[in-house]
Design a protein around this nucleic acid. Structure first.
Length: 426
RNA sequence: GGAGAGGUGGCAGAGUGGUCGAAUGUACCUGACUCGAAAUCAGGCGUAGGUGCAAGCCUACCGUGGGUUCGAAUCCCACCCUCUCCGCCA
């Protein structure tokens, strides 16, 4: 959520920054809402103040045993105007809040302008893709090794799910273990285990609701309430601090979590239908940081570096992209995507997304910290995949394939694979 | 699933219709005393919003949402959560 004060004091600036995202803010609608809000609120609060004063007088008069009927008559005269004002406010404020909640974050000044992904800027390229003659894709490799089975997954659930078996399943698990140990051991993150079903307030806090309900899976709880399956650990982990006023000395908070992620992938029916690239369920190791505002830009660089370290230790070629204004997510002020080399696609594909949300999520969550003596101040939040495990598995299979269809186990993973150096057909 | 108890400020804990945003204790901040500290004493100390150049003034908030009333932390209704006991369960 944007700072309401910023919209009031500098609406043209907000309009201009949002335009770089391809978003047109209806400034006329805002000005109308704001004028109405101001009129109703001041008027209603004046009436409330009058009523409170008179009601106090009633109490004083009655305690003295005096007649209060004149005051009671006056306060009765306020009744209708007061009720009408309160009702009008109660009707207006949700519309006002909904308008505000639907506005995406403003891109940071360092974000390149652009309409779509073609405007993204490559800021770094690491590692040289190996030359692989006639590379096979992960579906072919995994199936031949007896470790990837999409047909069975279709029977159990439907499309966009996978079954893994044997050493491939173990490799998948090894990747998660490796990433968790790296981030906790070398990057200073605290491992957390969190719920996979969350409430609507949490989804609102990180910005998935109200705009992106269609991308989420829902689980009914009772007639009035439902849970949402998390689309990323960002949601439960970041919301751990929702509504909190943190001690300044406790910052930064750095959490890492390994969770499954569930996405309905509404609106992407034709894309990446083959293999494990785009699934309804996938595992991810997520990095989350809660930091003081002045530290967040440095933290974004560090956090992205932590995700890059995973790729480097696995010796997987990748490039780092600065997303342009038009390609960023709703809540982000700036995002780096890491894209890993996939030989069979002859392309770099997204494997991590690292963002600084500045105070956008913190304001929705009301997460603040108390710097010495001053008023509570909103924190900044960041997160990034470190990494998406399903896609990392794909990258390992395709980049480490051998001519005979076997897979060399990357050196960094062998201690989690019982020392195994090569995966061959069972 | 059944029975009971309870949700009030950072924490503990009063308050059951009226100058209550809320006693008291504790923690914390400032000052006094002290060579310094402890102890003691005095003062301060919730959040959000509105308005104002500012000092300030005003509004809302006692789990959440409704209701009764001139007036609700307090009364009524619904819901949520926590704890204890029983049952079941990994």
């Amino acid at each position: 959520m944007l700072d309401i004060q910023l919209l009031r004091s500098n609406l043209p600036f907000v309009v201009e920054r949002l335009a770089t995202r391809g978003v047109t803010l209806d400034s006329g609608a805002f000005e109308t809402l704001e004028a109405e809000r101001k009129r109703l609120q001041t008027q209603t609060q004046d009436l409330q103040a009058r009523r409170n004063t008179l009601s106090k007088q009633v109490g004083i008069l009655k305690s003295k045993g005096e007649d209060a009927s004149a005051v009671l008559a006056e306060v009765a005269g306020l009744g209708d105007a007061l009720k009408a004002g309160e009702a009008a406010l109660a009707e207006l404020m949700p519309r006002f809040d909904a308008f505000l909640a639907g506005i995406p974050n403003l891109p940071h000044e360092s974000v390149p302008a652009g309409r779509d992904e073609s405007g993204n800027i490559e800021v770094l390229r690491w590692g040289a893709p190996k030359t692989i003659a006639a590379p096979r894709d992960h579906v072919e490799l995994g199936s031949a090794l007896g470790g990837l089975d999409f047909e069975t997954a279709v029977k159990i659930s439907g499309s966009r799910f996978a079954v893994m078996k044997g050493q491939i399943a173990r490799l998948h698990r090894a990747l998660a273990q490796f990433m968790l140990d790296l981030h906790t051991g070398e990057h200073g993150y605290t491992e957390v285990y969190v719920p996979y079903l969350v409430n609507a307030e949490s989804m609102f806090g990180t910005g998935q609701l109200p705009k992106f309900e269609a991308d989420l899976f829902h689980v009914p709880r009772d007639e009035n309430e439902k849970f949402y399956l998390i689309p990323t650990a960002e949601v439960p982990v970041t919301n751990m601090v929702r509504g909190e006023i943190l001690d300044a000395a406790a910052l930064p908070l750095k959490f890492v979590a390994h969770t499954p992620c569930f996405r309905s992938e509404a609106g992407s029916y034709g894309r990446d239908t083959r293999g494990m690239i785009r699934q309804h369920q996938f595992d991810k190791v997520e990095l989350v940081q809660i930091v003081p505002p002045e530290k967040s830009w440095q933290a974004l660089e560090e956090l992205t570096g932590h995700a890059e370290a995973v790729l480097q230790k696995l010796d997987l070629p990748y490039r780092k992209m600065a997303l342009c204004s038009g390609d960023m997510g709703f809540s982000a002020a700036k995002t780096y995507d890491l894209e890993v080399w996939l030989p069979a696609q002859n392309a770099y594909r997204e494997i991590s997304s690292c963002s600084n949300f500045e105070a956008f999520q913190a304001r929705r969550m009301q997460t603040r910290f108390r710097s010495e003596k001053s008023k509570p101040e909103l924190v900044h939040t960041l997160n990034g995949s470190g990494l998406a495990i399903g896609r990392t598995l794909v990258a390992v299979l395709e980049n480490y394939q051998n001519a005979d269809g076997s897979i060399t186990v990357p050196a960094a993973l062998r201690s989690w694979m019982g020392g195994l150096e090569k995966i061959t057909a069972a």
